[in-house]
C-alpha cells in the first residue's frame, strides 16, 4: 500500500529533523500533570478522565497546525489515508514512535496500535485506579482535537492499555460525521 509506506517514510524524515526533548522528562511531566488533576478532583475518576481528555483536545487543536505546516503531507482523500498519515507520520513526528494502523470495514473507524508508549514510562497505576483511570486518554483528546480541525468529528476510545495488563496500547477512532466548512449558523447573513 503506497500511502502507508510513503506516510511512514515522511514520518521518519520529519522525526530526524525536529528538535528533541528528553522522553523521561516528558513522561514525568505528564505524571506531574496527572497527579495535579487527581488531587484536584477528590478521586472522582470520571472527572479525571474527562479533564485529561480535555487537556489532550486543547493540545490537538494546536498541534495539527504545526503538523500541517511542517509535514507537507499530501491531501488525504479518504479516512484510510488520514489514518495512515495520523499513525505513521504524525505520531512519528511528535513522539518518535512507530504505531500500526488497522482499518476496519466499513471504513468509518480505525485503530492505532502503539507498541511503545512514551506517556506510560515509569507508570504503574494503584489498584483503586487500575481499571477505571484511563491514564493515556490524553491521546484520545489529541486525536479528537486534531481531526476536528480537519472537519472530522470522531470519537476515540482506549481499547487496550499496557497499564491494565494488555501487551499493547490500542486507540480506536470512530468517525461520527464530517463537519461542513464555512461559518457557523450564527454568522450567516440573513
Amino acid at each position: 500500500m503506497s500511502s502507508k509506506s510513503s506516510a511512514a517514510a515522511n514520518g521518519q524524515a520529519l522525526w530526524a529533523k525536529v528538535p528533541k526533548a528528553n522522553a523521561e522528562l516528558f513522561a514525568l511531566t505528564y505524571g506531574a500533570l496527572v497527579m495535579e488533576v487527581v488531587s484536584d478532583s477528590d478521586g472522582n475518576v470520571d472527572e479525571i478522565n474527562e479533564q485529561l481528555e480535555k487537556i489532550g483536545y486543547s493540545i490537538g487543536i494546536r498541534s495539527v497546525d504545526e503538523f500541517l505546516a511542517k509535514s507537507n503531507s499530501p491531501y488525504c482523500k479518504n479516512l484510510e489515508e488520514t489514518a495512515n498519515v495520523l499513525g505513521k507520520t504524525a505520531f512519528k513526528m511528535f513522539l518518535g514512535i512507530n504505531c500500526d494502523v488497522q482499518i476496519y470495514n466499513p471504513p468509518t473507524s480505525f485503530s492505532l496500535i502503539l507498541h511503545d508508549n512514551p506517556l506510560s514510562l515509569f507508570v504503574e497505576l494503584p489498584d483503586n485506579y487500575k481499571d477505571t483511570l484511563q491514564y493515556t486518554i490524553l491521546y484520545c483528546g489529541v486525536i479528537r482535537g486534531a481531526l476536528e480541525m480537519l472537519n472530522y468529528k470522531v470519537e476515540c476510545t482506549l481499547i487496550k492499555s499496557t497499564l491494565r495488563g494488555d501487551d499493547v496500547d490500542e486507540i480506536k477512532v470512530d468517525l461520527k460525521n464530517i463537519l461542513q466548512d464555512g461559518a457557523g449558523e450564527d454568522y450567516q447573513e440573513e
Binding site: W15, V18, P19, K20, A21, N22, A23, E24, L25, F26, T29, Y30, A32, L33, E36, V37, I55, S58, I59, R62, S63, E66, M93, F94, L95, G96, P118
Partner: peptide, 18 residues
C-alpha cells in the same frame, strides 16, 4: 528515549495553563 521538543512544549503549556 526522546520525543519531539514540540510534544513536550505542548504538554508543558497545558501544565502551565492548568
Amino acid at each position: 528515549t526522546q520525543v519531539s521538543l514540540s510534544a513536550f512544549s505542548y504538554l508543558y503549556s497545558e501544565l502551565v495553563q492548568y
